[in-house]
Amino acid sequence: MARSSAPAPGAPSRDRIVAGAADLISRRGLKAASIREVAKHAKAPLGSTYHYFPEGKQQLATEAVRYAGAAVSGVLRRQLDAGPVAGLRAFLALWRGIVVESDFRAGCPVLAVSVEEPPADETPPALAAAAEAFQDWERLLAETLRTHGADAERAPGLAALIVASVEGAIAMSRARRSMEPLDQVAEQLEALIVGAVGGPA
């Protein structure tokens, strides 16, 4: 996911639909992202949307969450080579770009799916995909924290704190139409990371 998960005009039809679904979910939530609305948002034929996703909305939502999760993981993998602070800054910059460029209309599609109420006694595939995305981000952060000197037992908890704090700050920034919450969280998280690894990282 680059600055925005909006579909690229020249993208292949299936990819364009998945990207469009991720963008629409990030703006309106899962309930408002019907197959028809996704096709319209992605500028894709409705028939093609049903063709690629014959199982319907849950299949499309699951693919959209996996797409968004993998895109963020890719950014983290590239930047975490330079250390956990660099990874944190890239993580924050990604979401800052999406929130600001959408005029506070878009956030994280993974979080948007996570807060939807699931059917009783059932874990929808999209919700399971969201859990996997969060776990992957946490794992990547925990690995680099340990590599750079953080206590092995503390690293997973700190990684979970980073993901949870950033996701919460994205929601707060959208609600307040200000990047101040994300800026405040960024400052505190960076200090925590530096303390955890025993110096600049």
Rank of each mutant, 00 (worst) to 15 (best):
A2P: 10
S5L: 06
A8I: 02
P9C: 11
S13G: 04
S13P: 02
R16P: 00
A19M: 04
G20M: 06
A21L: 04
A22I: 07
D23K: 08
S26W: 06
R28K: 10
L30R: 13
L30F: 03
K31T: 12
A33C: 09
I35H: 02
I35V: 13
R36W: 00
V38S: 00
V38L: 00
V38H: 00
A39K: 01
H41W: 06
A42G: 00
A44M: 09
A44E: 11
S48N: 14
Y50M: 00
P54V: 00
G56C: 07
Q58E: 15
Q59M: 08
Q59K: 09
A61W: 14
T62K: 13
V65I: 13
Y67Q: 03
S73M: 00
Q79D: 15
L80T: 07
A82V: 03
A82K: 15
G87R: 00
G87M: 01
L88M: 04
L88F: 02
R89D: 13
A90F: 11
A90W: 13
L92E: 14
L92Q: 12
A93K: 02
L94K: 14
L94M: 13
G97Y: 03
I98K: 14
V99F: 03
V100Q: 06
E101C: 01
E101R: 15
S102A: 10
A106V: 01
P109R: 12
A112M: 14
V115N: 02
V115K: 11
P118H: 12
A120S: 06
A120D: 10
P124C: 06
P125N: 04
A126L: 06
A126M: 05
L127C: 00
L127M: 10
A128L: 09
A131Y: 15
A131S: 15
E132A: 15
E132S: 14
A133T: 09
Q135H: 13
Q135C: 09
D136S: 14
R139Y: 01
A142W: 03
A142L: 08
E143A: 15
T144W: 02
L145Q: 08
L145H: 07
T147G: 04
A152N: 05
A152G: 05
A155V: 12
G157I: 07
G157F: 12
L161D: 05
A164Y: 03
S165Y: 06
A169K: 05
M172T: 13
S173D: 01
A175Y: 10
R177D: 01
S178P: 00
S178L: 04
M179D: 09
E180Q: 14
Q184D: 12
V185W: 07
V185E: 02
A186W: 09
A186V: 03
A186R: 11
Q188N: 01
L189C: 03
A191K: 11
I193P: 08
G198Q: 05
